[in-house]
Each structure stands twice: as C-alpha cells, then as structure tokens.
Amino acid sequence: MDVEDPGLWEDLFVRDVDEKPAQFVRPADTSDPTWAVYEHGSYLGTVKADQAGSETMWRSAPTRETHRRLDDAIRALRRPPSWPRERAQASGWARRLLADDSLIALDVETTGLTDAYAVQIAAVDRRGAVVFNEYVQPDAVLEPAAVAVHGITPDRLAQAPAFAELLPRLTDVLHDRVAVAYNAAFDRGVIERELHRRHQGDAAAADAWLSRVWWEDAMVPYSVWRGLWSVKRGVYRNQALGGPHDAVADARLIIAKLEQMAATPPTSPW
C-alpha cells in the first residue's frame, strides 16, 4: 500500500514480503486497521496497526508481539514449527555464555567495511565494566562513509597509538577468554588483518594468536531468538545490533542482548 496512514488502507490487498505475496483481508465486522493474513489460501494470523505517538506499531496474533515494520510482523507469522525449539537453544546458549566468568564482549570500529583496519577497540566484562578501550592509528585511509557512521575522524586519531603498541595489552585481555562479538567474523577478521600486518604477513603467527581466543558470534543466535523468518532465503533475518557505533557502548549492548535472550522462560508462550 502506498498510503502512509494504515487507517486508510483498503479492505483487500496483496503485499510482497521477501518476494512472496501475502493476502490481507479486513474482517467484515470492523473498520479498524486490522487484517487477517493468508498465503495461498492458508491463514497465517492477524495484524493490527496501533499508533504509538507519531509511530505506527504492528501487533500480530497469535504471537502477541509488536513490530515497527509490517513486513517483520509477517515474518513472525511465517516462522517454521521448529522455532520454539531453536529459540530455546539460543536462550540456553546465552545463559551458558553469561555463566562463564571469562566472558568478555568485544567491538571494533573500523576504517570501512572492506579490508578494514581498526580505529577503536573495546571490550567489557560480563557486568559491562570496561577492560579495554583504545583508539587506534590505522595507518590506512579512513573512508568518509565510515566516519559518518562512527564519527571517529582522522584528527581524533592523530595521536592514537598503533595496533602494535596496543597488542601486549590486548593479548592480556583476550587470550584464554571467551570473546563474544556481533558478527564475530568481521571483528575477528579485523584483528587478524592487524596481526598479519604486525607480523609482516606471517599467517602462522597470526593464527597462533587468534587460536588462544574462544570466539562466539551473537548475531546469528540473536536473529534466531527474534525469529523473523525470510522465506526468500530460508533463514532467520539477521538483526542489526542497533548501537551508537561507539565500541564501548556497542560491546555493552551485546551483553544486554545476551541477558535479554537468557531471560526468556524455558517454555515460551509461542
């Protein structure tokens, strides 16, 4: 629908969500912005638009959840039957991590998205206390798009130490500990790239250093826990961390997401 106000939407319409059409039918006994949702004639559930200030929120039944986007409400209705079990597994994973005294959350802000180098590295412990927080002189081009995201300018990094200077302290912080990151492959890849540069391309030295860290990725388990199913890809859609792109704040947000997942009752109402 092209009309912004859901209250003005038609009684019957079709909307593609992840390239699969969903049919919306307003019940005959109401004029509220409420629609029953069908796929190929099979009933998925019901969605209703609620105003929260200036924002439209979408409530879905039978999940009893609220979503900022109608497409996400449909993705929730499309969850596979295995989701309650998979969600419970994600919650158990989070509880096990939080029970590990060696746990730290790590976040790295970078020069860009491709072949990036670090401009800020931070780690917090299980309780959110900062155990490492340093800006890094990247000795590489700092892409304007990256600056627009995290706000770390070349001037801010002019007097920052190089990665090699920070490596002894970072080694003390990370080695023999569980490090959880959001999209861990990216953060680990940045550290690996820095290690390669530090060791002049010696892959064995970099691998030996990285092998002493137990890496965990929170993005996929959190995406499973949210359970927004993409029929196009056949997987749960990855969820943005949603932080301010400050390494300390984002690392603390990872801990908060683990706590949110861990707090889910073993028996879910869904």
Rank of each mutant, 00 (worst) to 15 (best):
A162E: 12
A122S: 14
R85E: 15
G92W: 00
R75T: 01
G53P: 06
R95V: 07
S60N: 13
L103N: 03
A76N: 09
S54L: 12
G128V: 08
D139R: 14
T56Y: 13
A160P: 08
S82D: 08
P161F: 05
G128D: 11
D71P: 02
T153Y: 05
N133Q: 03
S102A: 11
D107I: 05
D125S: 07
P144W: 06
R79I: 01
A61N: 11
A105G: 05
L103H: 03
P62E: 11
R126I: 14
G92T: 13
P161D: 09
P80L: 13
S91M: 04
L157N: 09
L157A: 08
H67W: 15
R69I: 02
S91C: 04
Y135Q: 13
L77N: 03
I152R: 06
S91P: 01
R68E: 10
I74L: 15
L157D: 08
L98P: 01
A160M: 07
R126S: 15
A76C: 12
I121Y: 04
R78P: 03
N133Y: 00
R87M: 12
L103F: 08
V119Q: 06
T110E: 09
D71A: 15
E65Q: 14
W83L: 14
E55C: 05
A122K: 00
T63C: 12
V141D: 13
E86F: 01
D115N: 15
M57A: 08
P161G: 06
P161Q: 06
R96A: 15
Y135V: 04
V108W: 01
M57S: 04
A148K: 11
T63A: 12
Q89S: 11
R96D: 15
A61G: 07
A118Q: 03
L98T: 02
A73G: 10
V124C: 09
S54T: 12
L103P: 03
Q159I: 00
P144T: 07
D107F: 05
D107K: 06
E109W: 02
R68N: 10
A145Q: 14
Y135T: 09
M57V: 15
A88Y: 00
L77I: 07
E134V: 01
P154S: 11
E86D: 14
L113A: 11
R156D: 14
L103Y: 04
S82K: 06
I152S: 08
A90L: 05
P144K: 09
E134Q: 15
R156T: 11
Q120Y: 01
R127W: 10
A116K: 03
F132V: 09
L77A: 03
L98A: 04
I121K: 03
V136N: 04
D71C: 05
P154L: 09
D72E: 13
E109D: 05
Q89V: 11
R64V: 05
A73P: 06
I152L: 09
V131W: 10
T111Q: 08
Y135G: 00
G112Q: 10
T153Q: 05
S82W: 00
A99C: 01
A162Q: 13
A123Y: 01
D72H: 14
Q89Y: 01
V119C: 12
V147H: 02
A118K: 02
A105H: 04
G112N: 10
P138R: 01
R64S: 14
Q137K: 14
A145H: 10
S82G: 02
